[in-house]
Write a protein that binds this DNA or RNA. Structure first.
Lengths: 240, 240
DNA sequence: CAACAAACGAGAGCATTGCTCTTGCAATGA
DNA sequence: TCATTGCAAGAGCAATGCTCTCGTTTGTTG
């Protein structure tokens, strides 16, 4: 099925599809996802609006394609930042680098970030294709945490002594981490998994608050504040 | 200027304004802010679209009115939950109750929550009128924290020993808290203020992740998970 | 090579949106 | 009583997403 020798039409189709995506991406840098006009991107690529429907059945499908692209770009940026840390055993440094890269990408691509993590458009359910790229950042964060655990940093207490244990509620995440099949085949402790999810929520919350303007007047230097948050998140994980 | 005896026209205007707001509010329960159609709410109240412009100069002004109303409703719910805690000296219980009420309101009013804390509509800047009601929840949370401080729960370390101190970046919040003028006229320590802002970001992040579906597959019982998060946020504040 | 089918771009068209303008009616106040 | 003001209705404009049709081009098959 996958012919290497593509016909001219197939090549043209792939090129035009990419061209439309690129135009839509450019438009996204100037306006939010809700304002993305299919007719406008059609004009940008020199086509009539109805012609675009040959490539994307609807505006939502265009958004889905953009969604996947943006998720992958963010994931790649986060992973690259982690990979760039020289000392692979310094889990804290890796954590901070990955968190920072996430915020940096968000600040540089606010509308793409809004597309990924903003309030979803009504009636639009993200299809299956998006869930894998969507988890790249959190997966990498989990890998860093698990690497620290494998290196001997065992958390002291379990979740059982807490009045609100994470144990039953994060079972899905625990199983997902087991399925990841890292170097340590040991079960990830629920408390640590819950703490990691909590940290991820904090990262998202801090970035979104900054971008949506909810910290205006309270926080002056957002980068510095974020670094402080990320550092405390690591210590709060309860490792070592 | 503020006549108690209103003319029939003034009364009618107030009533119709409320009627429009109510209709818009109802529409918001079925669709997101971006999909709120001014013409549709006009139809709901039995008016022609142009007539609505006598009461709200633009769609954005309608959204602003809804914004203030929703902020106040959420703030009232959170404050009521805190006030309902019997033991006023149990700051942890008050914290948990306030956090829970915030989540409960969000779950019950997802579209209103999206209006408040979702990605903002492009080109729409929330006017001054909204900032006071917008801070009701975080103000109450700060009051609870400061009450605990006043009760003698002093945090052990300062932020200076941290590699990423909160100190300079949260000056605005520190001053805002001083202006609040609580029972304790003492300066709020930057570390504690930063921690409180961080906690508020986490609450927002956790609720938004739940509502926007970013925790599907990882968290099974959202209420239980949230309780665990809120409880850990309190201990992470570093009080007592 | 010829014939057929599929893909394609363009255009017209429909229903909808936010918003402006004009028109005529009704309530208000001197 | 009468001029002023507030108000609702309607038409209209520029957009939007999307559908349909109509020739034309491209690819495949007999």
């Amino acid at each position: 099925m996958e012919q290497k020798a593509k016909t001219a039409r197939q090549r043209a189709r792939a090129e035009i599809t990419a061209e439309i995506l690129q135009a839509a991406r450019t438009r996204l840098t100037q306006a939010g996802p809700g304002e993305l006009s299919l007719r406008a991107v059609a004009r940008d690529v020199g086509m009539v609006s109805s012609a675009v429907y040959r490539y994307f059945p609807s505006r939502d499908d265009l958004l889905t394609a953009l969604l996947i692209e943006a998720y992958d770009e963010l994931g790649a940026a986060a992973e690259a930042a982690d990979d760039a840390v020289a000392d692979r055993d310094d889990a804290a440094a890796r954590w901070l680098a990955t968190c920072r890269a996430t915020r940096t990408w968000a600040v540089e691509h606010p509308h793409d970030y809004a597309l990924l993590y903003g309030s979803p458009v009504t009636g639009y359910a993200a299809p299956r294709d998006t869930i894998v790229p969507a988890t790249r950042v959190i997966v990498r964060l989990v890998e860093i945490v698990m690497a620290a655990v494998a290196a001997g940093a065992i958390e002291p207490g379990t979740s059982d002594d807490e009045p609100h244990p994470f144990d039953p509620s994060v079972r899905g995440a625990v199983e997902a981490i087991r399925d990841l099949g890292g170097p340590s085949a040991t079960e990830a402790p629920a408390e640590l998994v819950g703490r990691t999810l909590m940290a991820w929520s904090t990262i998202f919350g801090t970035i979104s608050f900054e971008l949506w303007g909810h910290l205006v007047g309270s926080v002056s230097d957002h980068e510095e504040f974020f670094d402080g948050v990320a550092a405390r998140l690591w210590t709060d994980l309860g490792l070592s």
